[in-house]
Amino acid sequence: MKHAHWLLLVCLFVLCLGCQRERIRSSQPPLSRSIPFREDGQLAFVRDGDTLVTIAIEIAETDSARQRGLMDRTHLPERSGMLFIFEREEMQGFWMANTPLSLDIIFVNGDSQIVSIAKYTRPYSTETISSQYPARFVVEVPAGFTDTYGILEGDRIRWRRHARPLTAARP
């Protein structure tokens, strides 16, 4: 009788362990192919007129591009990020749903001054990451970027879009 009791306990333990593994596996998002980075321009982080670092940027300025952001990106080239441009300066909220990369999120006001920084955001989180002050621009860079380059609240950004090639007029 004792052996049957132990056997039953072992079977229950193995069953629970299998259920736990399946729950963990099903809660993790599927791996997908990374979306390639599209360089739309350059952005410099500036303090007292001196450039701290310059990065390549992909620009998100439409509603759909801002909503998509860096979702499903598994890689960003070194010294690159995404610049979000909003029509108005207001409180901004971001989340990391479907974003496998940890990021630093930099909130910038209409005068191009950094007003708050959210560092080392948690991948796949649905928690809202809010600016502490109204922002018109948001820059997302790989986690640790702001520590590596000493980017601080009060610093400024300067950015420019690459010139787009002119298309020939059709006759």
Rank of each mutant, 00 (worst) to 15 (best):
K2Q: 11
L8I: 10
R21I: 12
E22C: 07
R23S: 07
Q28V: 09
R33M: 11
S34Q: 12
I35S: 12
I35Y: 09
A44Y: 04
T51K: 13
L52G: 01
T54D: 01
E61Y: 10
T62E: 12
D63A: 13
R66F: 02
Q67H: 10
R68N: 08
M71Q: 15
T74N: 13
T74P: 01
L76H: 06
L76S: 08
P77C: 09
E78H: 07
R79M: 06
M82N: 05
E87A: 14
G93L: 05
M96L: 09
M96K: 00
T99V: 07
L101K: 01
S102T: 06
L103Q: 04
I106R: 02
V108Y: 02
N109H: 06
G110E: 15
G110I: 08
Q113W: 04
S116Y: 03
A118E: 14
T126C: 02
T128A: 11
S130R: 15
S130A: 10
Q132K: 14
Q132Y: 06
A135C: 05
F137H: 01
F137C: 04
V139G: 05
G144Q: 09
G144L: 10
T146E: 03
D147T: 14
D147V: 13
E153H: 00
E153N: 07
D155Y: 02
I157E: 04
R158P: 04
H162Q: 08
A163Q: 12
R164L: 15
R170W: 11
